[in-house]
Design a protein around this nucleic acid. Structure first.
Lengths: 231, 231
DNA sequence: CCAGCATTTAACCATGCGGTACATTTCGGT
DNA sequence: ACCGAAATGTACCGCATGGTTAAATGCTGG
């Protein structure tokens, strides 16, 4: 837990000589890829915890074993690092979403699984949720520049569009269901469940956030989404 | 728009004397209540825009016509001001919620109105929503100390509990509806609609956020909540 | 009208923090 | 082996910003 870095270090004391002066010779290996990756990991965590203004470059450097200097060397400035972290978080989350395969399932079952998956996926990526919250506080200012997004937008909706089309085809779904609105509904509940847990549980208690309760809640979301879609 | 303060000012130049030196005598009226209120208003806006770490005391002072010194005079330090602002925001929002009267309405109609009201109310209090987002980023650390909350928690749920009880009584609602979960669902969608608008509309377009679309969306929320509750 | 307290002004302080300058070391190519 | 570029270490800078000190001005009660 203390040595958080993938990049390698070696510290050696001058061979046989006496040690009275602090003449340690630190030798290090160059490992730009690993250092850059370390910084990104640390930055995601730090920004997720403290926001853009609240994050401290020095603290990010401390999380792994590197110097502020390296952060500016690789990412230019604080905002550059923030943007890179946000982008990387998106990339990895999208990769996670790609694991879901709904092909060949009947529409109601596909939708059920999609909701369950989204619910769990959001819970398991709290740091990402927090980064999105923070980005919303900033009115999406930094996200606007990212081009990584274009793909994720289409895939999420297209998946839902296929399900809706199939559901309408079988006559199970209302004819006027909107994939976009459906996505909005699912996102809203799954996102809120993570994003607003602190304030919600302060006001209403932790009741809804035990493991068991979360399982129930997930099914309630499934139920709400399904019933609202059925003809 | 430039003179944002309720408190009063007078600037007078020394009567008949020549004006070559900048010997202006500014006389001012003491108005502690107004100044304190001004600061709170400005603080709410500043914190809502920039978060706790991002907010600048000097900027808060600049919004109205006062000095940093007064802010520390009245609120001690930055966190004290933040807590006061958060508390005040809660107070005023709760007051707004109290305007809704559902007595005597049949349960489905009461629920319909409650959802519509919540949807609109959240939209109309974006600053409050942002403060809650920010507080969630901080894990509710500052909210935990507030005692103002105890009331709001009960009232919101009790109102829903009454509706549910009535709905179950008439046989219209499922017997196992949970007021708390229902509140969670309603909050999730109404909150998300405001909190995540920036990132959502960057990814999927502004489509859902035109006035017309928001009206439709509101009814979709009503529909989703109602159908999920009906027997 | 005066004494004393509350409120406001103006100038100032300390330091945390983003960012840089410059030296030093590693490493790949030839 | 050696050179230049990439990567890292170390020390430092400037300043924005939270917070304070001290004095001036307004207010209120006796």
């Amino acid at each position: 837990m203390l040595d958080n870095r993938a990049s390698a270090w070696e510290t050696e004391v001058m061979d046989g000589e006496r040690n009275d002066s602090e003449k340690k010779v630190r030798s290090w290996k160059q490992d730009p890829k690993a250092v850059r990756a370390d910084i990104l990991r640390a930055a995601k965590a730090e920004f997720a915890e403290n926001g853009l203004a609240g994050a401290r470059i020095q603290d990010i450097a401390n999380r792994i074993q590197t110097s502020k200097r390296m952060i500016f060397y690789y990412f230019g400035d604080k905002e550059g690092l923030y943007r890179a972290a946000l982008e990387d978080a998106y990339r990895s989350v999208r990769k996670g979403e790609a694991e879901l395969d709904l092909n060949g399932l009947p529409p109601t079952e596909a939708l059920r699984r999609l909701v369950r998956f989204t619910f769990d996926h959001h819970r398991n990526n709290a740091d990402f949720i927090r980064l999105v919250m923070i980005e919303n506080i900033h009115d999406g200012r930094h996200m606007r520049a990212m081009e990584t997004l274009s793909e994720s937008s289409t895939t999420a909706i297209e998946q839902l569009a296929r399900i809706c089309e199939a559901g309408i085809g079988t006559g199970e779904f209302r004819k006027d269901v909107s994939p976009l609105v459906l996505h909005w509904q699912i996102s809203a509940m799954c996102f809120f469940n993570v994003s607003n847990r602190p304030t919600f549980s302060i006001i209403f208690g932790e009741e809804l956030f035990t493991d068991k309760a979360q399982g129930d809640l997930r099914e309630q979301v499934v139920h709400a989404v399904l019933t609202s879609v059925l003809a």
